[in-house]
C-alpha cells in the first residue's frame, strides 16, 4: 500500500494512540505535573467529571509556569488551554495530521464514539507508525524479475 493511501484510509484507531494521562480540573498544578512525569506524557487532558474541558502541554508548562514562576498550588484550570482541538477515533489519519499542521500542535486528545476522551495522539506517534510500516513495505515488495536467471540453474 502506498503512503498516500495509508494516510487517507487508516484511522486513528488503526494508527494507535496513547492511553490518556488525565486529571480533574480542580487539582493543583503540582499534582498535574507529577501526573505528566509519571505518565511520561507531554500532554495532560483536563477533565470535569468525564468530560474533556482542556489540555495542558509541556510547552504550556514552560511558558505559563516556569517563565513566570507561577505558584504550583493553583488549580490546573487556571493554566490549561480550554476547548482544545480534538481527533475522533474513527477519523482518517490525514485529517488529524492536517489539523495538527495547520494549528502547530503536537498532540490532540482522542475522543471515542461517545465523545469521551480515550487517549492522545501525537505527531511522534504517527512517525512511529510510519517507521514501523516501512520494513513491511520493503519486505513485501515483489522480487525484481530482471535479476532472475532466464534458464534453470544447471539445466
Amino acid at each position: 500500500m502506498k503512503l498516500h493511501a495509508i494516510l487517507k484510509n487508516e484511522t486513528v484507531a488503526d494508527v494507535g494512540y496513547f492511553k490518556p494521562v488525565k486529571v480533574q480540573e480542580g487539582k493543583n498544578m503540582r499534582a498535574a505535573v507529577k501526573r505528566m512525569r509519571k505518565g511520561k506524557s507531554g500532554c495532560l487532558l483536563i477533565l470535569k467529571g468525564r468530560k474533556l474541558t482542556g489540555i495542558f502541554t509541556e510547552r504550556d508548562f514552560l511558558t505559563r509556569i516556569l517563565l513566570t514562576e507561577e505558584d504550583l498550588d493553583l488549580p490546573v484550570a487556571n493554566f490549561m488551554t480550554p476547548n482544545p482541538t480534538v481527533a475522533r477515533i474513527d477519523e482518517p489519519i490525514y485529517r488529524v495530521l492536517a489539523r495538527m499542521y495547520a494549528g502547530g500542535m503536537r498532540h490532540l486528545p482522542v475522543l471515542g464514539k461517545r465523545g469521551r476522551p480515550i487517549g492522545t495522539i501525537s505527531v511522534g506517534q504517527v512517525a512511529y507508525f510510519l517507521a514501523d510500516l516501512h520494513p513491511t513495505m520493503v519486505y513485501n515488495l515483489p522480487p525484481d524479475h530482471a535479476r532472475y536467471p532466464s534458464a534453470r540453474e544447471g539445466g
Partner: peptide, 14 residues
Amino acid sequence: ILRFLSESYPDLIP
C-alpha cells in the same frame, strides 16, 4: 516530518 508529509501530499495535508 509533518511539513515534509504536507509537501509530499498537499492534497491530504494542505
